[in-house]
Design a protein around this nucleic acid. Structure first.
Lengths: 162, 162
DNA sequence: AAAAGTTACGTTATAATATAACACTATGAC
DNA sequence: GTCATAGTGTTATATTATAACGTAACTTTT
């Protein structure tokens, strides 16, 4: 039984530098094992996504890449994102048109996002769909891809407001 | 216990003209009871949304409104949509940046969408969140708004492909 | 290692979606 | 009728995303 609590990384206080490094090296491993190239660009974009547990828009990623003298255009970012999404190294948060690094790359299966509207952090819970799938099956519907995004207030932010 | 099957209107063969009329008059009643104005514009947009059980983009709505001699601009559509969304007369399908008429206006509570990628129809199931809510509660998260969009193939389209 | 094939990157232009800001009009309250 | 408010209309622009085409870098074959 996958226990949710252990997966709820974003809302847990943790050594984030270490978290980033772990996820980056997991991405490297995953690409190597699949014979895919984690190119410099892709790595750059992934690193930007992994800077925090808050989702970031494609144009904000672009702005970060262009902080130096570089003048890079949107398609480059979208293509790197496409790769990362396909390989399950990043997720798209539909209700924000934004992107976030995956915190358990390699685990297949559907993901449920908890989006705090106060701190903007997004937690990723695995395998939520069972009940939903059942409802769908009842009407003969076969699920291909699921978007589950729950917006609200995380435990920390509830305390901070009172 | 709300039974899903009865709510799964979009994938059921039905007299759609009657369906439209029923939903439009339900909207009228709801607005009257809440002391809100279902103005001509709002009604026009709602009628366009109710033409089918397929989601439609804001600019497609705009195009329909502009089919005659009218030259109307985006904000008009977005404002009507804002009203309809707020009152629960329409829903936004996040993964498509599109909108759909609500098939059970007045029922509060979260909604789960089944989106057929073949026929593009969207069915609306009520009250799906219980299991998800539990996972969220386990980590102290309080849900405010939920987006549950399951993309796949409806029963009809499975048959039609083989 | 040159040729050929493929994958990734770069650039320009533009499409598609959404909103800010401000003016005008209709409606309801008094 | 005047006033306040809610709704509509218009212009301009912001934000998000992709099409199309060319170049560079890796890989495979020879």
């Amino acid at each position: 039984m996958t226990k949710s609590k252990t997966s709820c990384l974003a809302f847990s206080h943790h050594d984030h530098k270490r978290c980033q490094n772990k996820l980056l090296s997991a991405a490297r491993d995953l690409c190597e094992s699949r014979n895919l190239r984690l190119t410099e660009r892709r790595k750059q974009v992934l690193q930007i996504l992994l800077q925090s547990h808050q989702p970031i828009g494609a144009y904000d990623i672009l702005a970060q890449l262009n902080q130096g003298q570089a003048r890079i255009a949107p398609p480059i970012v979208y293509r790197a994102l496409e790769f990362l999404l396909e390989e399950g190294l990043a997720h798209r948060i539909e209700c924000k048109n934004a992107f976030i690094g995956c915190v358990h790359p390699g685990h297949q299966g559907a993901t449920q996002f908890l989006i705090c509207k106060d701190c903007d952090k997004v937690a990723e819970l695995e395998n939520p769909v069972s009940a939903l799938q059942e409802d769908a099956r009842n009407v003969g519907f076969v699920i291909d891809h699921s978007v589950v995004e729950l917006t609200g207030t995380c435990a920390d932010c509830q305390q901070n407001v009172g």
